[in-house]
Design a protein around this nucleic acid. Structure first.
Lengths: 142, 142
DNA sequence: GCATTTTTGCGAATGATTATCAATCTCCTT
DNA sequence: AAGGAGATTGATAATCATTCGCAAAAATGC
């Protein structure tokens, strides 16, 4: 079994688990998402997916992203400036650092902050459902 | 001197300091912003301002908000779902809690988290310019 | 008050995203 | 493997928040 076949099998399984029909375009988009190590926007995902599966439209990319987001398979981020950006949901939660000059996005995680957030919500009588934390930074000047 | 006159005087001073011309619509919008204790969007600010100064357009509200944001007089927030929301910059920094059911926004502050954020950025060789932290919550079930 | 320069209002333009809908595809049942 | 119900698709129109372009109106400096 080739590597590509294996990837298709995995994507198929994931889509089935999500309870949606397994289409060529969904397999392709999901594979692109899982293979991406950055945080592309819809247009970029469309371009990448098209290289692998020409029979895909931008509308379907948006639709599929919404479906997968609802299923928790992908996450949508709205960083400052520009449209939404996406990433496949990984095993570990993380927040983001945005390099203001390059636009690059890095991931980080702080259990301490996570705990403090829970605590703050609790003190106000709330349950924390989810949060958003983004650090907008510039490379330190020497 | 009446209260309204005093407010106008303050707004005028603030606009002068920002180095822009003092117009009726800017005074009115700024007064609405300072008087607001919630986080209205542009449309809502337009409606409120119009009550006080009918000679204002939505375009001017947007333009003025951008000007005031650039001057640091107001802050723009993009919470999940819907357009940008604004608030007059107060003396103290704070982050936000969004009630997922009502859409209400509360403010909070945690020095501990602020410090940890600085530290995380520093560890990665970055200077933290600003950040965004929003806690999306539901009222705790009893 | 008058000239200069900024600001305004209106409506058109934009950009990202979503809705529409007939044609096509999946998948369950034979 | 064929049939059909129902989900999904591509192309395009529509939407929504926000910005732009420009002539008219207003604010500042003298």
């Amino acid at each position: 079994m080739t590597l590509a076949q294996d990837m298709t099998a995995q994507m198929t399984a994931a889509l089935r688990k999500a309870g949606v029909r397994v289409t060529r375009q969904r397999i392709a988009l999901l594979a692109v998402l899982v293979g991406a190590d950055d945080h592309p926007d819809a247009e970029e995902l469309y371009k990448r997916t098209k290289r692998v599966e020409p029979a895909v439209s931008l509308a379907t990319v948006y639709r599929t992203l919404s479906v997968l987001e609802a299923e928790g398979v992908v996450q949508r981020h709205s960083f400052e400036g520009g449209g939404a950006r996406f990433e496949a949901t990984g095993p570990a939660h993380h927040d983001h650092i945005v390099d203001l000059d390059s636009g690059e996005v890095f991931e980080f995680n702080s259990d301490k902050i996570e705990r403090l957030q829970e605590q703050i919500a609790a003190e106000l009588g709330y349950d924390l459902v989810h949060h958003r934390m983004e650090l907008y930074c510039r490379r330190r000047k020497p």
